[in-house]
Nucleic acid binder design. Structure first.
Length: 308
DNA sequence: AAAGCGTGGAA
DNA sequence: TTTCCAAGCTT
């Protein structure tokens, strides 16, 4: 019936709705308690890269207790850092976070930088994390575009079920155009849109009934159509290098001593439920890759451990 | 620029 | 059971 495109929603309306919702509904997360310094924010942002909040929280608390400053982490052995990372996944992030701490001490007087450019120069810090830390730790006006922001804007503004597979220039423009001009408000907006995407405007099972944008959402107005894009490529898992690498590191995480190659490979394949006859060669290759990446260290006698 | 990189919970 | 996906980064 409606052949006439609905007028674009004024950004002021988006701001008012989302900020009001956020003030009332925001989750109490430890790195948002107002006492957390820039280091704590950086640690949280790196841990949150591709890892859900619920899994990050306890690890972040223990981490901040143990390494309350960049200098403290910089002085730690890489292996201990990988061990403390636990099962958050992508343990290279732990290595890079430690390298970032080293760079902060060496190049920035031990203080986490407050500009996006300087933050981008730190290992493991990309466009999202730099913008997030500059905003949430230093109160700067940045354009924070994460998967939540992309989904909210794709739906509310563009009327699509989900954002494109990769960040597009158009998306960045839309995001930039919605960030309030005032620095203090921009920070609240950035965190509020992310929160909305995480809590209500979820990838699966969006809670539109509770959303402050229901009546102005382009996607809802269009009848909440299903995604029309190409089907997503799910990550293969069983028998992949990724699974085997994870299993190898996990074996080493569980022991403080070095482990003979046979024992390491055998235990990893066992926990991965893979046939040693079929995956032995692949596992050896994965082990070499882990050594190459600095996640595993070979020691005398054909043994391996987390790097000292 | 597409692919590789962990993990576990929910649907 | 399988699939999807979660505050991305790097090469």
């Amino acid at each position: 019936m409606s052949g006439v495109p609905r007028a674009a929603v004024p950004v002021a309306v988006l701001h008012e709705r989302v900020l009001t919702w956020f003030d009332a509904q925001k989750r109490a997360l430890p790195w948002r308690d107002g006492r957390t310094d820039a280091w704590g924010v950086l640690v949280s942002e790196v841990m949150l890269q591709q890892t859900p909040v619920v899994r990050v929280e306890p690890v972040w608390r223990a981490w901040m207790e143990r390494w309350p400053t960049p200098a403290a982490l910089a002085a730690e052995a890489p292996g201990e850092v990988v061990r403390a990372w636990g099962r958050l996944g992508y343990p290279r992030r732990a290595l890079r976070l430690r390298e970032a701490a080293v760079a902060v001490v060496r190049d920035h007087g031990g203080r986490v930088p407050d500009t996006e450019d300087a933050l981008r120069g730190l290992p493991g810090v990309g466009a999202y994390t730099a913008a997030a830390v500059a905003a949430f730790a230093h109160g700067r006006r940045t354009v924070v575009v994460d998967t939540n922001v992309r989904r909210v804007l794709a739906r509310a503004v563009q009327g699509r079920a989900q954002a494109a597979p990769a960040l597009t220039a158009a998306e960045t423009r839309v995001a930039a155009a919605t960030v309030p001009a005032d620095a203090a408000t921009s920070v609240r907006w950035n965190v509020a849109v992310m929160e909305l995407g995480a809590v209500l405007c979820r990838a699966r099972g969006p809670r539109c009934a509770q959303c402050p944008l229901v009546d102005v959402c382009a996607w809802v107005a269009a009848g909440s159509p299903a995604d029309d894009g190409p089907p997503r490529r799910g990550q293969a898992w069983h028998g992949t290098d990724r699974q085997i690498r994870g299993a190898l590191v996990q074996v080493l995480r569980e022991t403080s001593r070095s482990v003979p190659r046979e024992h390491l490979v055998g235990r990893a394949l066992e926990s991965a439920r893979l046939d040693p006859a079929r995956h032995r060669e692949q596992t050896d290759r994965c082990l070499a890759g882990l050594v190459e990446d600095g996640l595993v260290e070979p020691v005398r006698g054909g043994r391996f451990r987390l790097p000292a």
